[in-house]
Computed example of a mutant assay.
Amino acid sequence: MLANGAQSVSLVELFILLLILIFIFSFTGTQEIHTVSKISVQKQQTITVPCLYVQKYANYPKYMSSGGVWIFSHYVSHSRMSVVDNQAENVFTATLREAEVRDSGTYWCAVTVSGSDPHAHLYLQVTEGIIDSIPEWLRVSSQTVSGYEGGNVTIRCRGASHWCRIRGSCVGRDGGSLERTAVMCDDADALRVTLWQLKTEDSGWYYCSNEDSQMPVHVTVMEALDITQFTTNPSESTPPLSADRRLLWLLILGAMLPIITVCGAVMLIKARNKRST
């Protein structure tokens, strides 16, 4: 009896230890990798997932894995998934093309390092239905928008209640604050977001969200066009059109002056001859 009891206690302890290890490995590095928590898309849609990381991981390989538990997840290697690393912005993106229902599940943004890879998870839901007909489903016309410094950009998020910056603050129907950002409710299920007086540091990843999921949107702010580059050097330029016209008129007047003088003299002589007769 004692031996069996001791064995059962050992199994319980082993199970608890395994749970602790799973918990530790699942949450290791989650504060260093950031992404959204859930994305819902329609079948055959292409979706891009941003994975933001801290600077120290810039030169390390990045990848996506899938599986409900991190330590049992497997590397995603099929041809419809591509990963692109942007070290300048400390973010890598995973793009899934032509999403299928069977692609639904938990995914992990991860960085290959020595020891346990830092990671963050999200859930992808792919549906057969037409999400445009479901008001509560999030959708945007495009995951990318762009504008120039000093200008404005507007994003329309259907089915959204908030607009947030990844690793930043939020603004929405119930308030919140995000610098130089205004939100308006177009109708019951649409949020119109305007970023105004854009600055280059506004570039980055944002998301529309509701109570259930998020939809990532990348904003690119380009430098304002320098109009001086289209202006020729004054020392090398030709005279302006108005100066050419003035010179032309002076030449015409100069050529006509002798004729006018002669005609005037003839008319004066004729007038004197008439008075004398």
Rank of each mutant, 00 (worst) to 15 (best):
S237V: 01
L17S: 09
F230Y: 05
I33Y: 12
K43Q: 13
L11F: 01
S177A: 11
L248R: 14
M256H: 06
T28K: 02
S133H: 14
H119P: 08
S104W: 02
A265V: 12
Y107G: 08
V126T: 07
H121S: 15
Q214H: 05
S235M: 09
V76G: 07
Q87G: 06
D132A: 13
P61W: 07
L257K: 07
D186T: 03
I155R: 05
S73I: 04
V219K: 01
G204R: 02
K199G: 11
S65A: 15
V76Y: 01
S73K: 09
T231Y: 06
R180W: 04
G151I: 06
P61E: 01
L248F: 11
G151F: 08
L248H: 12
S209Y: 04
A6Y: 12
N59T: 12
N4W: 14
P258L: 00
G5W: 06
A160M: 00
W108S: 12
S40C: 09
V41S: 09
D212A: 10
S133K: 14
A271D: 13
L18Q: 04
A120S: 11
E201Y: 11
P240G: 05
A94V: 05
Q125E: 09
T200R: 05
S141M: 14
W163M: 05
V183N: 09
V69A: 08
G254R: 08
I269K: 15
V126M: 03
S77A: 02
V83Q: 02
Q55S: 10
P240A: 10
W196F: 14
Q125H: 09
V171Q: 01
S79F: 12
F92S: 10
T200F: 00
Q44G: 06
S37D: 15
Y60N: 14
G151Q: 03
A265N: 10
T35S: 15
R156Y: 01
E149Y: 03
Q87M: 13
S237K: 00
W137S: 10
C51N: 10
